[in-house]
Design a protein around this nucleic acid. Structure first.
Lengths: 153, 153
DNA sequence: AGGTCTAGTCTCATTTTGAGACCAGCATTC
DNA sequence: GAATGCTGGTCTCAAAATGAGACTAGACCT
């Protein structure tokens, strides 16, 4: 049963979108010949940033109220100072977070969500809810997988 | 030594959740003294995996139909074979994707979303829609930021 | 024979991240 | 008036994750 020698014309995942499932399909599909390197898919462009572990967490941390650098560090104890600085700067660059410096002594810097940043909260909340709901199933899937692996050696 | 006295009692972001904004707040808040290292916040635990750049993309790529390894590689042209294998295995371990081997020659391996995996599509679609909508704003924010930076030197 | 196909693995170079020392500059304390 | 603490960072170096690409098995086709 040989493989068809001619490959199915699977399209590369690259371009924009509309809604729900269509959003996903299109989020990721582009005419095969299109210039995909120059202008990446908007969805990918954006998701590659905010999909980041720390970025997501920081947006969530800023959901309630503006926070100072040190507060954020304490809220997300396992982020390194380096990544905190860097991720905040990226979020600021993308217009999701604004940074305000108070010329007090010692210096105080306050980070807060912009309206654009706030608009991300609802999608994230939905994702978080999914995560919370699915956590048990995922944990048991992991356990089963690991057990099967150990079994099979 | 004035440490605690001055600092607001900011709680570390660590535990589970309920809904919408409350989901976010709680997704991330835990009683300060709780054992956070042993059991991470479910939301974080899950998001750290599926928040991954490739994982998200692959789930989306599998939205329409089951796909074979090579198909996925062609759909996401800039993923390395190494990361494709690894990410698929992680998704499988988490119970989001199932892997079926056909004992043909040459071998064929088909990946598909499990029901759990499919349940992630809607949250992802919402996020993707947000990304598509926000893309212009984000791009202009970036341009403005970079311009300001170049200006300020 | 020799070449092709698939789904991987393996190795090595490059990139990202983490841990932690260090900084400026004022306030408070000694 | 010197020592110390506080702030929000940056810098350096080690460790981890990722990318690029060579390599494999075993049946098939020519």
């Amino acid at each position: 049963m040989a493989r068809q020698s001619v490959l199915k014309p699977v399209e590369a995942l690259q371009n924009p979108c509309e809604d729900t499932l269509a959003t996903l399909r299109l989020a990721v599909t582009a005419p095969p010949g299109s210039d995909m390197s120059a202008e990446k898919c908007p969805v990918r462009d954006v998701l590659d940033h905010i999909g980041d572990k720390w970025a997501t967490l920081l947006v969530i941390a800023l959901a309630e109220a503006p926070r100072r650098f040190g507060e954020l560090r304490r809220m997300v104890p396992d982020i390194s100072q380096r990544m905190l600085t860097q991720t905040l700067r990226d979020l600021q660059r993308d217009g999701l977070v604004s940074r305000k410096v108070f010329p007090t002594q010692p210096p105080a810097v306050e980070y807060s969500l912009t309206p654009l940043g706030s608009s991300l909260l609802e999608p994230l909340a939905i994702l978080a809810r999914w995560a919370a709901q699915s956590h048990p199933a995922i944990r048991s899937a992991r356990a089963a997988f690991d057990a099967a692996l150990a079994e099979a050696g």
